[in-house]
Amino acid sequence: MSKETTSATFGFFGVVAALLAVLLTLYGQGTGEALRVLFDRSSLLLTGSSNFSGFGGGFSANVIISVLSMAIALVCGFFLGGAMVSPNAMVRSVAVVFMNLLRSSPWLVVLYAMLYLLPFNVSIFGHHIFVSPFLKAVIGLSFPVTAYIAEAFRNGIHAVPDGQWESARALGYRRGQILRLIILPQAFPLMLPNLMTTYAMLFIGTSLVVVTGTSDVLSIGKTVIASDGDDYAAAVYLYILLLFFLFAYPLATWTRALERSLSKGK
């Protein structure tokens, strides 16, 4: 095993062992009972429905929200980042101010603001579209993330040598073409670790959607605690910590590996 794999494996099992140790310290003799409660409620916490009959609630909601938010933020971040490297100084400075504005907003405040700012029903061409708290959470989270992506995008473009622009211009390419066909394909691998870190941050941030009334894993966790009794609160929170860790840690390890191979390639 390489040094990196060893340390990643150590981190992984170390954290899992640490969480287990806390569970054992808290429950002692009752650990078995606590694990049974977690097992019984696993389907609810993971999928939002009993006996794995459905999908889209609980932890799966956190995953879906993070993926959808990321998709929106990638598109918006692409345009905002593009505006931030615009040759027009006015466009550039407005885009930079806007990016900073989004980046310095607390996610919780943005989520609350979206909850009230967005209507629950939108009609487009006569179709009623129902804007659920779920959708609001997706949109709310995509705002700050757009800023991070725009920045990653700008830095990626800056990392491509100016000579590339000059030679492409000499070949008669237009600005948009250069950006799309020449700069982006080179910048994207450089941006990738940054984008992945942003995604991991967004994924972890989905725990905040508990305030929007979406049935995410934390909301369901609280309902379970309310129904099964406070004695199992610790177990439920530990379980949720573990779920997030199991998802986010491999992603972080992979990101580090990418970064290393990039810096080797230089």
């Binding site: 700012l117 967005l118 209507p119 939108v122 009609s123």
Partner: peptide, 8 residues
């Protein structure tokens, strides 16, 4: 954003 809301 509220422009969207008005049409709602």
């Amino acid at each position: 954003i509220s422009g969207i809301a008005v049409g709602a």
